[in-house]
Design a protein around this nucleic acid. Structure first.
Lengths: 145, 145
DNA sequence: CTATCATACCACTGGAATAGTAGGAATACA
DNA sequence: TGTATTCCTACTATTCCAGTGGTATGATAG
């Protein structure tokens, strides 16, 4: 039950951008270098966040991306669900998929529902600002994304 | 982030067997029929549970599988980890994989560690007996696996 | 004692999803 | 005109998932 690279990198990109000065555009090249990922692969992940309205972009020379809102206004849950599609541990819990005919007699469904709630409660309770703060505190002055 | 059919079916097989009379061997054919899965596919999943010592088998005519212990002695976490390999949401958290060089400076690792704990605490807090009991209560007399 | 049947057990395969790579067009600015 | 960027589309290698065909084993009927 793994989160794919889409979700993992998306979160790291968001934290990276959250750590930059507010309002300035950061080129993907810089993010990719700091995060140890290729620009080309990030270019495939960023649009998911962009289309969701989480990022503003600027093309051309000296362009790049920046957050649309302050870091405290993004929950990690929103970011992961945007990149991954859904965090539900089984398809039966996704809105489009709950047509399973065993639904009423399934002996494991209540368990999965509980797991789903535990996961979503956790990820929705953490914001980008929380991540950034904890991590600055942990790294002291010499923090670097 | 989905649990695969291995984990899902493994859990259903265990609950199914837990609902049978204690000590008797139940053929996979019966389990497969009740669960709406092919025998062939279950035959691929069962060995994982068998090798872990969770099940006892008996070959030949009138053979089958039964639980090794009482239902209350199996946590859902143990069953899922046996079938799935690991429930960690990212590979960095698996014992064999924590050689990532970004480990000390990773801004998201604490978040993933927390998610891992939330997930494992939940699944380790539920036993087969719990599932069976809740589900009998929910279905009344006419429960059927 | 032998044939038969029901069962657990083992090995293999096709297809889908993941994780990238690559080329190039559009855009903004100097 | 040149350069640095976002943006779009296609391609590929690999791994994982789901499912199938065939073999070994044990009980039992004749």
């Amino acid at each position: 039950m793994k989160i794919s690279t889409k979700g993992r990198y998306a979160l790291r990109v968001m934290v990276d951008l959250a750590s930059r000065e507010e309002g300035v555009y950061t080129p993907l090249r810089d993010v990719a270098e700091r995060q140890g990922v290729t620009v080309k692969y990030l270019e495939q992940i960023i649009p998911l966040l962009h289309r969701a309205g989480y990022l503003k972009s600027f093309r051309g020379n000296a362009g790049g991306y920046r957050l649309s809102k302050a870091p405290a206004n993004y929950t990690v849950g929103d970011i992961l669900r945007t990149a991954e599609g859904s965090l539900a541990p089984i398809a039966c819990l996704d809105a489009e998929e709950n047509d399973c005919e065993r639904r009423e007699i399934c002996c494991t469904l209540p368990f999965w529902t509980g797991l789903n709630k535990v996961i979503n409660d956790y990820v929705d309770g953490v914001t980008l600002a929380d991540l950034l703060e904890d991590w600055k505190a942990h790294s002291g002055d010499r923090y670097a994304i």
